[in-house]
Design a protein around this nucleic acid. Structure first.
Lengths: 236, 236
DNA sequence: ATAATAAGTGTTGTAAATACATTTATTTAT
DNA sequence: ATAAATAAATGTATTTACAACACTTATTAT
């Protein structure tokens, strides 16, 4: 077979924007970059694509390297290809965003990397174009979660409605009426009320809910329309 | 500066899914591939990324090469990176989709390429993973156009409401009530009624409309909700 | 017993979406 | 000149979805 001889070849990386929610704030997991250039600066977790893997697998591999987690919600975000984005050598990067249960991560943390959670509103200056990636990931998460039930991926198996609401409020940077919010969420029939309560965050305690996994799997692509007024999108 | 010596480098291409609407059907512009492997087979327009361009520019360049058009609606769709997608040598491709006014194309067609419009429902077997790209582009177009006013990009400057409706109906593969459709479209205030009529497609004639460009520019990211029931997404 | 805290719940008004049928302008055939 | 055919244009009534709003309940600490 002939080869595409004259064309030039480029380094291909994958980066992950890893979201977590600690009950109060939306956070992103960052690492200190361990190779030159820009060694020691904060960065998204990433790595070069290997010869036999596709992007999805590369993304999963890199997520697992850092967090130990598999089977996590992950989605291709965008391919970044500015010729000068890595000053060392031209490198394109396919960015993925992942939603993880922050508590699972704490158990599995890989100490080969120096990783830290940063609140989404206090992201430091990152290497290359990683701040752009974060911005785009935030926009996508906001957009997608306005219509699709994906935010459950950020919560532990059992969670309360007030927790869920504060997650939505954090992402949309606004407040919702708890009666209307509860009604909308319940109307999806994705949640199953448990008999026990979370007694950490209030005196009365809030009932736990779990996802109805069968329904959830069937409704991943369904529409919810949880957000009162979509105009919200214009202010990130 | 150090180099990323050990990593391997990959060919990077851009492909364009070019949509057009002839008044009746949604179509895609395909070319006969002019290099080995798979020479002579139907393919999406594409090309390798050059040393100094980013993806958006590569996409625009490739679209212009074939159609002569610039300033066209274009959006990054997805990066395709299966290791065997091109059997000749590993090549990743960043796919873009473009919406063009099919009539503008007819004037500017570049005879270096053998290009043809194919109805979206009669796309032939394409090279590599291009059929996957087309499927993904269709899904994206459907998804996006359900909420955002982008389908005007497929129509000429002056168009009628019945034309617009049949475009929507083609994309969603269903029929809408014309009274409700008209009301929804008008409620966006994006259209300006003209004094003249299109007399081609009916005896009575249908009034032309033009986009209110100022409002349109301001509303690109606005939400419309033209589609009665979003369940439609599940059947492509 | 009382105060403090956050959870939980119901109703009513308003706006949006849907379903549905007749009239109008024009051309063509008789 | 009239009638038939064709597709465009238009209005209303009903249903449904959404948003606004306030009080009661369970529990703990004093």
């Amino acid at each position: 077979m002939p080869k595409y001889q004259k064309q030039f070849r480029i380094l291909v990386a994958v980066n992950c924007i890893i979201f977590g929610f600690d009950g109060t704030e939306l956070k992103i997991l960052l690492v200190k970059r361990d190779l030159e250039p820009e060694k020691g600066k904060w960065s998204l977790m990433g790595g070069f694509i290997t010869e036999k893997e596709n992007f999805d697998r590369g993304g999963s591999r890199i997520l697992k390297q850092l967090t130990g987690l598999e089977g996590v919600y992950m989605e291709q975000l965008h391919a970044f290809g500015h010729p000068d984005r890595d000053p060392n050598e031209r490198t394109i990067s396919v960015a993925y965003f992942a939603l993880i249960d922050i508590h699972k991560f704490e158990n599995l943390i890989n100490s080969d990397y120096h990783a830290e959670w940063f609140p989404i509103k206090k992201i430091p200056k990152l290497v290359f174009d990683h701040n752009n990636m974060v911005t785009k990931a935030r926009e996508r998460l906001r957009y997608k979660s306005a219509f699709h039930p994906i935010l459950f991926e950020l919560l532990p198996e059992k969670f309360t409605l007030p927790q869920l609401q504060s997650l939505y409020e954090g992402i949309f940077d606004t407040e919702f009426d708890k009666r209307n919010f509860s009604r909308k969420i319940q109307s999806t029939k994705l949640l199953v009320k448990q008999k026990d309560k979370d007694r950490e965050s209030s005196k009365k305690g809030a009932y736990y809910y779990k996802l109805d996994k069968r329904r959830y799997a069937a409704n991943l692509h369904a529409f919810l329309n949880i957000i009162p007024n979509p105009v919200i999108f214009n202010r990130l």
